[in-house]
Design a protein around this nucleic acid. Structure first.
Length: 294
DNA sequence: CCTTGTGTTCTCCG
DNA sequence: CCGGAGAACACAAG
């Protein structure tokens, strides 16, 4: 599931790959992959350039030059944005990449049966929006619409707006459980099911705790755990459980740091004594250790 | 049946 | 009875 660390990895990589390159072709394979928009995608994209790539929560925003619009892409559960470079350096009549997998090259044929949208860049390569479960979408909006959408998101955990004071205020004024608060994009942006469970575990707090009952020392641990988990996950290029891959088609490395997520009935990796429990909290499968978390 | 992120709808409470 | 908050449901497909 692409959450903040996965989407941020894709954003950083794609910036290096497609900034300021001219779009020469756009193919919308599945029309329903484009959410309601008053613009025709190929008409506005062909001849245009991506001049910046931003991220708000789990939403990727590609800033276009002229006309000045934003292409928003949400990957939801199984969406992928994969860039396949042409990378056919011909030396002495032989292509170096033919039949080989050079660095940065996608290891399978694209487009495939899950490809929704194809965007081709001049002389360089092609961006594929793939989505097996078809929850994700692309959407073309004006800068004004983009700002309105960004404004619906809460605090970004990796910015200076995420402070102990802000988190304390949030936890004390909301009447809900910790897991629901962490998952709510309007409160804190970018956290999904994997990182919510990992943050609660590192903080030593149970996910079903009512946020109003949290003590100051627990709130401080939650604040630190949120930053630690998200920062490390970005450094490790995200978590691959099922379908997540980066823009090179490669998996994330954070799975080996997971302490509770998808580890129910297994021994806790922190205390090495208790067995990881699983139950539904805030409508989602939730993993925790009863010895390490209170 | 289960899984998840988010938009929509429902329900509750002051 | 109104408004807002939060919970529950709907969605897709493997």
């Amino acid at each position: 599931m692409p959450e903040l660390p996965e989407v941020e990895t894709i954003r950083q990589d794609l910036r290096k790959k497609l900034l300021n390159k001219k779009i020469v072709q756009v193919v919308v394979v599945r029309e329903k992959a484009i959410r309601e928009t008053k613009f025709a995608l190929p008409e506005k994209l062909i001849g245009n350039k991506v001049v910046e790539i931003e991220r708000v929560g789990k939403l990727i925003m590609l800033k276009l030059q002229k006309p000045a619009l934003y292409l928003l892409v949400h990957l939801k559960m199984t969406g992928q944005l994969i860039y396949k470079s042409k990378n056919n350096i011909v030396v002495g009549g032989h292509s170096l990449t033919e039949g080989t997998k050079s660095h940065g090259e996608v290891s399978w044929e694209l487009p495939d049966k899950h490809t929704q949208i194809i965007i081709e860049f001049e002389k360089d390569g092609t961006l594929y929006f793939n989505d097996m479960r078809r929850f994700g979408y692309a959407r073309l909006v004006t800068p004004e619409q983009k700002e309105l959408i960004a404004a619906t998101y809460g605090i970004e955990p990796l910015t200076k707006n995420f402070t102990l004071t802000n988190l304390t205020e949030l936890l004390k004024k909301k009447k809900t459980n910790l897991k629901a608060l962490l998952l709510n994009q309007a409160f804190i942006a970018g956290i999904g099911n994997i990182y919510a469970d990992e943050i609660c575990h590192m903080a030593g707090v149970l996910p079903d705790r009512n946020t109003a009952t949290l003590k100051d020392v627990e709130i401080k641990k939650l604040f630190q755990a949120t930053q630690k988990v998200i920062k490390l996950a970005v450094k490790e290029r995200g978590t691959t459980f099922n379908s997540y891959v980066d823009s090179d088609g490669k998996k994330g490395n954070f799975v080996r740091f997971l302490k509770v997520y998808e580890r129910s009935k297994m021994k806790c990796l922190t205390c090495k004594i208790a067995i990881i429990q699983k139950k539904k909290v805030a409508g989602r499968g939730t993993h925790y250790c009863l010895k390490c978390q209170r």
